[in-house]
């Protein structure tokens, strides 16, 4: 079943199946990230610049700032939630997340 994902209100929201699900303003713990030199970035989400689906995960690239070192940047793809049985389940931003470069490419494996 297709999942409709997009950003809204100048990147303030991620909408999943036309419901606003993930908002800016949360602090995300990010490990193995490339936005700043911190081993663990304490990353304030200021805007969602790209959103995508890698079933069942809903992913986004987030613009923001590490409040530990002050560096600004855009994360690699980060799972912000999953759709299971048609229902969106958000991840907990306060747990540790590992952004990744997208590995699932357009071509068949």
């Amino acid at each position: 079943m297709p999942i409709d994902v997009h950003q809204l209100d100048d990147g303030a929201w991620i909408s999943v199946d036309d419901t606003r699900e993930v908002n800016v303003g949360d602090l995300w713990w990010l490990a193995r990230q490339d936005c700043c030199p911190c081993e663990m970035a304490d990353f304030l989400a200021e805007g969602f610049v790209e959103v995508g689906v890698d079933p069942p995960a809903i992913e986004a690239r987030i613009a923001g700032q590490c409040i530990a070192c002050g560096a600004s940047g855009v994360t690699s793809w980060l799972a912000v939630g999953r759709v299971i049985d048609g229902e969106f389940h958000a991840v907990a931003p306060e747990s540790v997340h590992v952004p990744r470069r997208r590995t699932r490419l357009a071509g068949p494996e």
């Binding site: 409709d4 997009h6 809204l8 036309d18 606003r20």
Partner: peptide
Amino acid sequence: EDEHDAWFE
């Protein structure tokens, strides 16, 4: 409900 985003815009 599935048109909220479009209409709000």
